[in-house]
Design a protein around this nucleic acid. Structure first.
Lengths: 183, 183
DNA sequence: ATGTAATGTAAACAAATGTTTACCTAACTG
DNA sequence: CAGTTAGGTAAACATTTGTTTACATTACAT
């Protein structure tokens, strides 16, 4: 792994463990660097890339969004509709690390208790098992459906009897492991 | 508000705003104390009460769970059942500050799309408006229902036609402002 | 190989920050 | 009222910590 990525991970891990960001020397120690300067350069780079924020001169002045899930867009629960788009805002659930949120549009998953406007928590994955609820790309669109094995065929099944089963080619984006709704 | 509580709140606010804990001087400034000693004493007290954790000698060595919601127990969505109990674990959603989570037991709220096993996000409140979904104490039990004004009477209405409306005296604990479900 | 840039080391420095000591003040108690 | 305690001020102190400078090493394109 690149030193730069090691540092980013070290910060995330430290914040998770201690509840506050590490000092430069603590980072250096963690990734076996003997100089604070080296760390500083990488921190400056990470900051200019927007991956972290720094407050210069301040002890542990590192801001990071490690445990938070960016809201990256909506996903159609009806027919495949629109692909990812950047949306503002962050939710933070430490148990659901590395996940992101999608806003559900449509009613094709109501039998699975997923409704229009819900946010689904998605864990990135390239494969999924039979019967799992997944997020998948179908052509240019992104959709949420249940993965079903029918005979030897893998299909996308809506959880709403009025919608048809999708038999087109698709690519798995991730698994739905949670649902968040604002009442 | 007591100085002690001001300090606790100041820490929570600071972490929310900056992503890392405040220094003692920053706390002092925020609550208009002129000495760092005064803050230190309060921090030591808060630590011994278990409300925060401190790492002595370390800059910003304050650990706090400000943005996280403790899972304090389950609540019956069926008939009023069991009161709060301590449960392990924390969720973290910054938008839902000061809230806590309750695990739903029963199926009396299924018409509101709240199912057995769901976690509801509860914002503490002493009053609620007509038609809001609330958490309330009925006798010794805690339950989740929709608040309904029938004539001049305030009743608790399950969102499931097979359950009866509750006309007993109750006390509002909070409002349900969100739902979280693990798929 | 050779020069350049990226990356790291080592050490010194200045600022930020937690800790401690001494003293003051208001509130409460007997 | 005298005494005690909680809570605060002020200042000094020691450590932690970010920054900077100077130099060494490595990688890599020319």
């Amino acid at each position: 792994m690149k030193t730069r990525d090691k540092i980013l991970k070290a910060i995330q891990d430290f914040v998770d463990d201690y509840g506050y960001p590490p000092s430069i020397r603590e980072i250096a120690k963690k990734i076996h660097l003997k100089s604070t300067k080296a760390v500083k350069v990488h921190l400056d780079n990470l900051a200019s890339e927007g991956l972290i924020e720094r407050v210069s001169g301040q002890a542990r002045g590192i801001r990071i969004k490690p445990k938070s899930m960016p809201i990256v867009g909506r996903v159609a629960a009806g027919l495949p509709e629109l692909a990812f788009e950047e949306v503002e805002g962050y939710f933070t659930i430490s148990q659901w690390r590395d996940c992101f949120l999608l806003k559900v549009k449509g009613d094709s998953m109501i039998n699975a208790h997923i409704y229009d406007g819900d946010m689904v928590v998605v864990k990135p994955a390239k494969n999924a098992m039979n019967n799992e609820i997944i997020v998948a790309n179908v052509g240019e669109e992104t959709t949420i459906k249940r993965l079903k094995k029918i005979g030897k065929e893998l299909v996308l099944k809506p959880e709403n009897d009025t919608y048809p089963i999708i038999r087109e080619a698709f690519e798995v984006i991730g698994k739905v492991i949670g649902v968040i709704r604002k009442v």
